[in-house]
């Protein structure tokens, strides 16, 4: 009897193997071959010796670090206030904060672009600032929600116990609350960090001429350069595996979703 039920997973498994695993294998194959199908490391060499690609890689790392930090600084107090502070138990407020996740991100960015246009006059003048504003605007709810979840799950009496035992407000925060909410922070960071390296539509829509890693794939795609494009995709893939591996210690990235 048990035999029959587990066979239901077969279509799902075949689907994942054919359309998730196989594409990644083919991308890796394309990354290390040339137009004639001969194995080569020239795409690899091009990627790691070209000033433009390496510059883009480093710039997008920098952008991702800054965006993640800004999101974290805005999101942590917000998540705390919603979970344990003045708005605790008022579910409507949390809903209001995470609702932008369900609105099409290109339409939201159109709105942001029009507003920034009015404030700044010429968007092209502040490419870095606009990248950070745009990405924070897009990804902030994805940082708030996991931190909120880990804070609500936290046992409140632990904080009280720390205070009763003589810990000051700062040490309660640093020694008790931060470590206990670490799974939420890690999960939020992974959900913001990666898209900030790859979501180039945010930059495109704000009339940005700067490049991040995703833009490289986009431009190779437009010029039908599958082999160099695959090299960038494979590099990103490696980075994703690395980030997931590091993050695995504390969090489970499930259910919630980045933009």
């Amino acid at each position: 009897m048990k035999l029959e039920r587990r066979y239901l997973a077969i279509p799902y498994v075949i689907f994942l193997v054919v359309f998730v695993v196989l594409p990644l294998i083919v991308v890796t194959y394309y990354a290390f071959t040339n137009g004639e199908g001969q194995p080569t490391i020239s795409n690899f060499v091009t990627f790691f010796t070209n000033a433009r690609t390496i510059g883009t890689f480093l710039y997008s790392l920098f952008v991702a670090v800054v965006t993640t930090l800004v999101c974290l600084l805005l999101a942590y107090p917000a998540a705390y206030i919603l979970a344990k502070g003045y708005f605790a138990g008022k579910g409507g407020m949390l809903l209001l904060v995470v609702m932008p996740m369900w609105i099409n991100f290109t339409l939201r960015l159109t709105a942001l672009k029009e507003l920034l246009d009015m404030i700044e006059g010429n968007l092209a003048m502040y490419p870095f600032l606009n990248t950070i504003i745009g990405q924070t605007y897009d990804f902030l709810p994805f940082m708030i929600l996991p931190i909120y979840n880990s804070l609500t799950r936290m046992d409140h009496s632990l904080l009280e116990a720390a205070e009763d035992l003589g810990a000051g407000k700062a040490s309660v925060l640093i020694k008790v609350m931060l470590p206990l909410s670490m799974p939420g922070i890690i999960s939020g960071v992974t959900m913001v960090f990666l898209p900030s390296m790859t979501n180039y539509v945010v930059l495109d829509m704000l009339y940005n001429s700067t490049f991040i890693m995703g833009s490289l794939i986009g431009s190779y795609f437009s010029s039908y350069d599958w082999h160099n494009g695959s090299m960038v995709a494979a590099t990103l893939l490696l980075l994703i595996v690395l980030i997931t591996y590091i993050a695995e210690g504390g969090s489970s990235a499930s259910g919630e979703r980045r933009g």
Partner: peptide, 28 residues
């Protein structure tokens, strides 16, 4: 094992997912 496979599209960047599906189906 099934859960590990399913995690790939969840954690992967959409650019990479889209590009790799394009490479497999349309190019390859």
């Amino acid at each position: 094992a099934i859960e590990l496979l399913g995690q790939i599209p969840v954690v992967n960047a959409d650019v990479v997912t889209g590009f790799s599906v394009c490479i497999l189906l349309i190019v390859f």
